[in-house]
């Protein structure tokens, strides 16, 4: 039994290593990471700073709110704020591309004939993407914190490093990003290609849930449903850990409820993708 586990772990580790190697050298990984970091900096700090220093504050935020959002101790909230919609869309695209392209390139065929079982191959893929997500969120935190410290020093604010609340916010960010990643993996496997997977994923993350929220304000039942959809749960968790004031962030559910829904989606999407991968013929 022990040796069976060893073999399984060994093949999962081999697959994770292989996947990390190819994701690391994949231009799309860096392009999407770069786009996301630029976005989070621009919307989290550059515009706010310009509004603050130029006095052209048209975003209905008081000076105090602007200053607060850029404080280094709120860097965690700055990370989580962007994830329910834009950050989520980016990791979803990355995952859908990473998994979906393998069908056209024929690399799934190479992967599935290499040795490891299909379950191990999928576990390896999910594991490697999890590493990418952790690195991405950590990088975002570091960049946001750096920007916040830069602003605070420029403006001569008294500032302090983030505390426990930042840990909570970063944890929530990880869960949100993991959910969108699993969603992307599921779409890539289900549609067996990158194009439809990315299209459907973006439609859902950016358009469909927003439309439903619009309908929700007219119909009560739809409104309570939108709160627990993937994007809705992500938005509610972000709202619960202090990430208010960005598109897609909501305040309808408790943090715990939202986190449990997200966890459920992660398990569901990853499980469904693995089941499809194991069951279907690869032609």
């Amino acid at each position: 039994m022990g040796s069976v586990m060893d073999t399984v772990m060994g093949s999962v580790m081999g697959t994770v290593k292989a996947e990390l190697l190819r994701l690391w050298k994949w231009p799309a990984t860096w392009v999407l990471t770069g786009v996301w970091l630029v976005m989070t900096l621009t919307f989290g700090y550059v515009f706010n700073y310009l509004a603050l220093s130029g006095g052209t504050n048209t975003r209905d935020l008081s000076q105090q709110q602007l200053i607060g959002s850029m404080q280094p101790e709120n860097a965690g909230a700055a990370v989580v704020r962007g994830l329910p919609m834009f950050g989520g869309a980016i990791v979803l695209v990355l995952a859908a591309l990473a998994v979906g392209s393998g069908y056209g390139w024929g690399t799934w065929k190479t992967t599935l004939t290499a040795g490891p079982r299909r379950v191990s191959a999928m576990a390896g893929t999910l594991g490697a993407l999890a590493v990418v997500v952790v690195v991405l969120v950590a990088l975002t935190f570091v960049v946001d914190l750096g920007a916040a410290i830069a602003v605070a020093s420029l403006e001569d604010w008294g500032w302090s490093l983030p505390g426990w609340s930042a840990v909570e916010a970063v944890g929530a960010s990880l869960l949100i990003a993991a959910m969108w990643t699993a969603f992307g993996v599921f779409l890539g496997v289900a549609t067996r290609g990158p194009a439809l997977a990315v299209g459907l994923g973006l439609m859902w993350a950016v358009v469909a849930e927003n439309l439903l929220r619009g309908v929700g304000s007219l119909l009560g039942p739809v409104e309570s449903l939108t709160g627990v959809l993937p994007g809705g749960s992500a938005g509610n968790l972000a709202g619960a850990v202090g990430g208010s004031g960005a598109p897609g962030v909501l305040n309808d559910l408790s943090g715990t409820t939202a986190a449990l829904f997200l966890l459920g989606y992660v398990v569901f999407f990853a499980g469904a993708a693995t089941l499809l991968k194991v069951r279907r013929d690869l032609v």
Binding site: T15, R22, W26, W105, G106, W108, K109, T110, A114
Partner: peptide, 17 residues
Amino acid sequence: GFYPYLSGRDNLRVHAA
């Protein structure tokens, strides 16, 4: 079936892993 953006050698390294 190989990754188009990787070199031949890197593709084999991925496969070896």
